[in-house]
Structures are given as structure tokens and as C-alpha cells.
Write a protein that binds this DNA or RNA. Structure first.
Length: 259
DNA sequence: ATGGTTGTTTAACAA
């Protein structure tokens, strides 16, 4: 089973690109972030024609997440527990009802910049809620894939120029410690587990020629429970997508689980 | 380089 995650940065703008990539990559499950549209206008038909079922938690203008799956979607839940006042559409999970079921979440973790604004404590609080929810999900002791745009650079090897990011909300000490605390629940970074080379990124800023200069960072992750990691066969990044016409600033990241 | 670009929406804001 191939599971992918991709921050499309507006599904309206990226619809044709997304359909083209789906046709080539042929994933069984796709977690989308920053769809930037409400549920009612989600372009269901073209994805359904490719054989996908859809779970969506949309929002106007900002955020918005979805899961596409060639297997039936069951037990769909939206919103990350822990703060009923939080209206930002950043979380949807579902049980992928395949012969060997997998619970999958599509996550759009807050960016958190600038760090001296309320956005940074919101990010850290969101990470604490994610850790608490992951702890509950892991108690099921089943295959679990928490995939999405984490807005976290896990280590210096995940940035071309780590010095430029040390005070940034994506890489500062507090962020890395919070991410480590989450991962230390027992989650495996699928890409890290399958690839030893540094210099492999999932995001290049639109600004200042970041793509042309390969000033990338790796911030889109598939985090696997032990039961999922034991089935891990491959993982990769579809880097070439960044060089196409009208690209998202993120590219798809994927893993393959046995069956 | 207190810059640069893209998307939503149409003057900022988010990333």
C-alpha cells in the first residue's frame, strides 16, 4: 500500500497538477494539506473518477486537509482533540479499510512564525495536543500513519543551510524538542528510515530563487507506529514535481507498506 | 539584501 502526503497550497490552483501526479504515482492513499477551500466546493468528481474515496475538513482561504483513498474510508474524524475553541482546519483521520487496515491522519501543523507572536505558542500547544492524541491512537497497537506538513525540520541534515533556520519556528530548539517528544512515543520517520543521504528536501520557498539554488528543507513527514514501520518497504520524495509549471512550494512524500 | 514569491482576496495576511 502506497501512502503519500502533499501540501498542495490551494487545491483550486493545483487541481490539474494533482490529477497528473496521481496518474503517475498511483498512490492508494493521499493526505492533502492547504487545500484552502470549504467542503462544499471540494472538486470530488475528478478524484472519484480516478477511484478515490474522500474525507475532507475544509476551510475558506486558509488551511484545509483531506484524505483520498482507493479503499473505503471508515471512522472519519476531524479536528484535533484538546481545544474546542480551535477552528483552524488542520486535522482529519480515517481508517483505511483495506485487507490489512491502516489508520491514517492528514496533518497541517501550524507554521508558528513569527516566534514572538501568538502564533508560536499556538504551534507548541498544537504539538502538545498532537502528542496526546497520538498517545491515545498508539494504545490501539495497530498500523498508524500520521502524515502531513509538520512545519518541523527534524535535524540539521534536513536543511541545506541549517544556520539560516536556527531562530525560525520550524527549527528552533523548543520546536525540535517538542517534535522529539512526539516521535519518542514510538513513531518512525518513514523517509529517514529508508534513506541515508542528506540533502533531500520536501519544500523550497517561492522566494529568492530557493528552488534554483536548492535551498530546501524537509518538513513533510510520514510518522509510523511500530505495526506500520514493521511493514515499511520503501519511502521517497517526488522532487521533480517542484520543477513543473505552477508548482506548490511543497512536493509529495510517500512510503510503501507491505500489502 | 529588513529583500524575494505565491495564493487568497482585492489591502493585507499567511507562508
Amino acid at each position: 500500500m502506497k501512502i503519500a502526503t502533499w501540501n498542495v497550497n490551494s487545491l483550486k490552483v493545483r487541481l490539474d497538477s494533482a490529477l497528473a501526479w496521481l496518474g503517475e504515482a498511483d498512490p492508494d492513499v493521499v493526505c492533502l494539506q492547504e487545500i484552502k477551500l470549504v467542503d462544499d466546493v471540494f472538486p470530488r468528481a475528478p478524484f472519484e473518477e480516478l477511484g478515490y474515496n474522500i474525507a475532507v475538513h475544509g476551510q475558506k482561504t486558509y488551511n484545509g486537509v483531506a484524505i483520498l483513498s482507493k479503499f473505503p474510508l471508515e471512522d472519519i474524524r476531524v479536528r484535533l482533540p484538546g481545544n474546542d475553541e480551535d477552528d483552524q482546519a488542520r486535522y482529519v483521520e480515517a481508517l483505511i479499510a483495506s485487507p490489512r487496515p491502516v489508520r491514517v491522519a492528514s496533518i497541517y501543523l501550524p507554521n508558528g512564525n513569527p516566534v514572538d507572536s501568538p502564533k508560536y505558542p499556538y504551534k507548541l500547544a498544537w504539538m502538545a495536543r498532537l502528542k496526546a492524541h497520538a498517545y491515545e491512537l498508539l494504545r490501539e497497537e495497530t498500523a498508524l500513519v500520521l502524515a502531513g506538513d509538520y512545519n518541523v525540520i527534524p535535524a540539521a541534515c534536513d536543511a541545506r543551510n541549517p544556520d539560516a533556520w536556527v531562530e525560525d519556528a520550524l527549527f528552533r530548539r523548543e520546536t525540535r524538542l517538542a517534535f522529539n517528544a512526539f516521535a519518542n512515543l514510538g513513531l518512525t520517520d518513514a523517509f529517514r528510515a529508508c534513506n541515508t543521504q542528506s540533502g533531500q528536501y520536501s519544500f523550497w520557498d517561492y522566494q529568492a530563487g530557493a528552488w534554483q539554488r536548492d535551498l530546501g528543507i524537509r518538513i513533510d513527514h510520514l510518522m509510523l507506529s511500530a505495526q506500520a514501520a514493521d511493514r515499511l518497504e520503501a519511502a521517497g520524495i517526488d522532487k521533480d514535481v517542484r520543477g513543473r509549471d505552477k508548482p506548490s512550494d511543497h512536493v509529495p512524500v510517500w512510503c510503501v507498506l507491505a500489502q
